[in-house]
Design a protein around this nucleic acid. Structure first.
Length: 116
DNA sequence: CTCTTGACTGAGG
DNA sequence: GCCTCAGCCAAGA
């Protein structure tokens, strides 16, 4: 394992990094993938601590596809711009065709190596 | 130690 | 589809 690992937090970072370009996922999806289903808030809390990491937090939104965490970014519209830069259409803080851009971490379960 | 807040979600009306 | 309530767990005051 890696030194200084925060376990749950690290897990969230790893999964977030695995989100492919032009895709988005929800806190619940990550939480469920980590086995902490029902504790989606913890994912959000972890993302709050993801600052300074290479974690594309802008690709993580709530289940409705709304940019609930945009306020935590440097700018108010930074998160939206980042998503639009990836080809994702965002209107009124909400991702259009969310289901089409939605990506589930469980999708890589068959091509990923589990340490445990 | 207790209380509040928080980047959430699902169920019920 | 929208609103409200409750569950979830962790960190800060």
């Amino acid at each position: 394992m890696k030194p200084g690992n925060e376990n749950f937090f690290e897990r969230v970072y790893e999964v977030a990094k695995l989100i492919p370009y032009g895709r988005v996922t929800s806190y619940g999806a990550i939480a469920r993938y980590l086995g902490t289903a029902g504790s989606a808030r913890m994912v959000g809390w972890a993302m709050n601590a993801s600052h300074g990491k290479d974690v594309p937090a802008h690709r993580v939104v709530n289940r409705k596809g709304i940019l609930t965490g945009k306020h935590h970014f440097d700018g108010t519209n930074l998160m939206q711009q980042l998503l639009e830069s990836e080809g994702i259409e965002v209107i009124d803080n909400q991702i259009q065709d969310f289901e089409k851009h939605f990506w589930d971490p469980s999708s890589l379960n068959s091509a990923s190596s589990e340490s445990e």
